[in-house]
Write a protein that binds this DNA or RNA. Structure first.
Lengths: 364, 364
DNA sequence: AGCATTGAAGTGATCGCTAACATCACTCGG
DNA sequence: CCGAGTGATGTTAGCGATCACTTCAATGCT
């Protein structure tokens, strides 16, 4: 049975090495003004005792803050997950520690709940503000400790420029590009299966993807169909997209993300509509699985990892003005054309192919 | 510009309320021996000052430990992610805080690196030990603070019984079930595309899924083909599975998880092999997307969330013996038959038409 | 009335660490 | 040969909380 022997502290090390605790602290923190001989003694004592610094005590004592807390709701989506990876990498390269605290979308967190997630007041925080709980959290922290927070989310270039605590990509622009692509392919119009954030039902959440999509349609003088709201899950998307998929006049659907796109693909298949022959589907995010579906998803790639890295750098700048303010710079969103998009079937053929097609056999 | 006004401490509250700091502490921690009038005064002061307790200070001072750190490498897989959700929920219901620290599989973490992830020595920790970095971390913590750690991973019933710090499901059994199912369908043998953990290339990692699979084949007196090792990514799986998919004598593949299964599905499609006509594919984990692929994946469902919950309860028990030792209890793994599995095509029909196969089509 | 009991609140030490300042050699230039 | 520098360490005072006591007044019981 392992005895819970109390962990060695800086004092234990000091005693063993025959120096003061402060000297130990200096060694641990790599201060230059420690004699080599002393340093060795201390290092040896540290090794002997298996000493490891207590980070809690360290930050309590007002040492340099070297931790970030990431507040996120849904980390199952590729975007947030990739951004988190970016944050992690950037942080680790500087030896900062990263904590993730997951907000349960099912729970309705009170403002106090959210703030209670932070280990201490003023804890540097990055918020994944791409969904409702995230948006809430953003607002709360903005009120509480605006100088030590940064939010990642879908924002327009103007918003990003106006708010020094925002990091993100121009989702509207990306959606516009995808929509234009579908129009160029010859589709009369493009329908939109929208993620919850795009329905604008909660404060602060603008419908960026939906906005870019509708703008292009309007500019092209096309009919702008009502966007179809969907939840985040496959099941919700599958259900929401049914009417769209059942309607033979719908020839192109821009989906709010690749999860919705996969659900749409499935629904189309079950409805007997051939993709991309009868229906073009474009996703969003280039989730890893999207290259391996059948047919493979056409989607918009975004460099979330860079965004995460950018968020971390910005946070560091905001905490400590001496670090440079990073300029948001990452690759532009890029449309990846795979197999779910193509020109609409000519009207003449359209009528004749109402009969559901045996997909399995025809593709081989 | 928001001024970084220092956050209120327990002393500030005490001064404002005209009581001692200790009384404030009592109020905050809900001690019963505070007069109602006093409590109100303090509460009011707390509200006025926007005071919130500093969790760092709290645990430094030796208050009850109410935080867990989860060490995980790949959280993009459904299993770990669901387990994490389980931990989160269980922890939150008790008002514990949860931090996640991500181990980068690319980095080779030294033992010290791993230990440095913990905010302090003795920090209660749950390790997702399903992959190489996780296994490493498990070993390190086992040496360092065995009394305050629990690991989640694929283990046999015997291992689970033998190690009081282990939580998991019997992956071997689940794999055996899936293999038996394919055999019963009439396949001569079943091939296996194995996740890295199943190749047994690193210490402590036994090939549970692979083991269950091979055991059944052996018991049935079938040929046991070499398992095909794959990485975790779609790309690696896609590449690894090529030879299997190209070989017409291969009629059934058990994949180490649903990601590998999706890649296999894709590879089969590109190789012109019909699923499940020419080839049956069975996945593992019931990842959300698996119901929405085309054809929908047959897979093994596991209740990871319960496992996560179990891990948290076990950890609590190990830290504090007064809490009951939870008995591992969650639903058995369950095979979900969807559309990628079926009987092999009779040899004579091999080249000809599709044998009608019963398909579970409706999802949602 | 007299004294032990109990409840409410306060005091001081402590957790492990860092910041800021104090101290104590040693140098070194004039 | 002395005061100023400078480098290496030690000392002290917190950081924001909790724990273990102590204090003081209001009760209870005989």
């Amino acid at each position: 049975m392992a005895q819970a022997k109390k962990a060695a502290s800086i004092w234990d090390v000091a005693r063993l090495a025959g120096v003061s605790h402060q000297t130990v602290s200096r060694v641990v923190n790599g201060s230059p003004r420690v004699a080599a001989a002393t340093r060795d003694k201390v290092l040896e004592a540290i090794a002997d005792l298996g000493y490891r610094p207590n980070r809690l005590a360290r930050s309590l004592a007002g040492g340099a803050v070297e931790s970030v807390t990431v507040l996120a709701a849904d980390t199952s989506l590729y975007g947030p997950e990739a951004a988190l990876r970016g944050i992690e990498k950037a942080a680790r390269s500087l030896d900062w520690s990263v904590q993730v605290s997951v907000l349960d979308p099912a729970d309705t967190h009170s403002d106090a709940d959210i703030v209670a997630r932070l280990p201490r007041a003023g804890e540097p925080t990055i918020i994944m503000a791409h969904d409702e709980p995230g948006m809430r959290a953003k607002q709360v922290l903005l009120d509480t400790q605006p100088h030590a927070m940064v939010a990642i989310g879908p924002y327009t270039a103007e918003e990003l420029a106006a708010s020094p605590w925002l990091v993100g990509m121009d989702d509207g622009k990306a959606a516009a590009g995808a929509t234009r692509y579908l129009l160029d392919l010859g589709h009369d119009t493009v329908h939109h299966l929208a993620i919850p954030t795009s329905t604008g039902t909660f404060g602060g959440g603008k419908a960026h993807r939906a906005e870019g999509w509708s703008r292009v349609l309007r500019e092209a003088g096309r009919e702008v169909p009502d966007p179809v709201p969907s939840g985040w899950t496959f099941a919700e998307a599958f259900k929401a997209v049914q009417p769209l998929v059942a309607d033979p006049s719908v020839t192109a659907i821009l989906c709010g993300n690749d999860h919705l796109a996969l659900a749409t693909l499935r629904a189309a298949h079950l409805a007997g509509r051939e993709v991309p022959g009868d229906l073009s589907i474009v996703g969003f995010d280039n989730t890893p699985f999207s290259a391996y579906t059948t047919p493979a998803l056409t989607t918009v790639n975004q460099d979330f990892e860079s965004v995460g890295r950018g968020a971390f750098e910005l946070l560091r700048h905001r905490i400590d003005n001496s670090t440079p303010r990073p300029k948001p710079s990452w690759p532009e969103p890029e449309l990846i054309v795979r197999e779910t998009s193509g020109p609409p079937r000519p009207a003449s053929l359209h009528r004749y192919s109402v009969q559901p097609v045996q997909r399995e056999t025809s593709t081989v």
